[in-house]
């Protein structure tokens, strides 16, 4: 927990003008990344983000400065998104995720033209498509790790998952994406 976090929280609790707006502005990107990646529906995600910050405002007195404010808000956003998915009966994990990891490692790099793939925008588009079709949990973990540059420990504090579980998800999903990249390149002209 940083000194700035404490100052900001105290300002919000004291109803200082503009303090809560600043809190939202500072953490809305993380909130959006978590919820939009989980829910994958822009309108629902926007409403859930708003709901998240209303909850944050209502329960800010319960924040005990034990973790970074970012992690605490991220945790609220993750819980809100998870409940939404549970209500809609949408699975957050792919049940067949553990299959064929060893084969994927073995087959790495068969017939892959590096120079072309690195520059090809079509391959980038295919990768994006592959990312979009990942289950909500994997999509979110990858975004928090790669785009938000959060550490495994920070992601663990947001999601409540064990660090080993997060690493396993990251490992398998990146392996799967690399596999899809190679197979997609095989069918390109």
């Amino acid at each position: 927990m940083s000194h700035q976090d404490r100052q900001l929280v105290e300002a919000v609790l004291a109803n200082a003008p503009g303090a809560f707006e600043r809190l939202v502005r500072e953490h809305q990107a993380l909130c959006w990344h978590i919820i939009y990646r989980m829910v994958h529906h822009p309108e629902d995600a926007r409403d859930l983000c708003q709901d998240t910050f209303l909850r944050v405002h209502r329960h800010l007195r319960q924040y005990r400065y034990e973790s970074a404010l970012k992690s605490w808000i991220g945790r609220v956003a993750y819980t809100v998104a998870l409940r939404h998915l549970e209500r809609k009966r949408i699975a957050v994990l792919d049940p067949g995720e553990n299959e064929d990891t060893a084969d994927a490692v073995e087959n790495a790099g068969d017939g892959f033209d590096l120079e072309t793939a690195y520059a090809d925008s079509e391959i980038a588009a295919r990768l994006h498509q592959a990312i979009e079709t990942l289950p909500p949990m994997q999509r979110t973990l990858l975004t928090l790790y790669h785009l938000d540059e959060l550490s495994i420990d920070e992601i663990a504090s947001i999601t409540g998952l064990a660090a080993g579980t997060i690493k396993s998800h990251l490992f398998r999903t990146r392996l799967r994406l690399r596999e899809q990249l190679e197979s997609a390149y095989g069918v390109l002209p």
Binding site: F20, E21, R22, V24, R25, Q28, W32, H33, Y36, R37, P42, A45, R46, C49, Q50, F53, L54, A108, G109, F112, L114, A117, Y118, I123, A124, L127, H128, I131, L142, T143, Y145, H146, L147, R174, L177, R178, L181, E182
Partner: peptide, 25 residues
């Protein structure tokens, strides 16, 4: 190979919150 994957994963999301989201909330 993995750098290509990492680059795709670092791209900003296709949608974002409205610019006035913070003031609305």
């Amino acid at each position: 190979r993995y750098r290509t994957v990492a680059r795709a994963l670092r791209q900003p999301l296709d949608r974002d919150l409205p610019p006035d989201f913070a003031s609305q909330v």
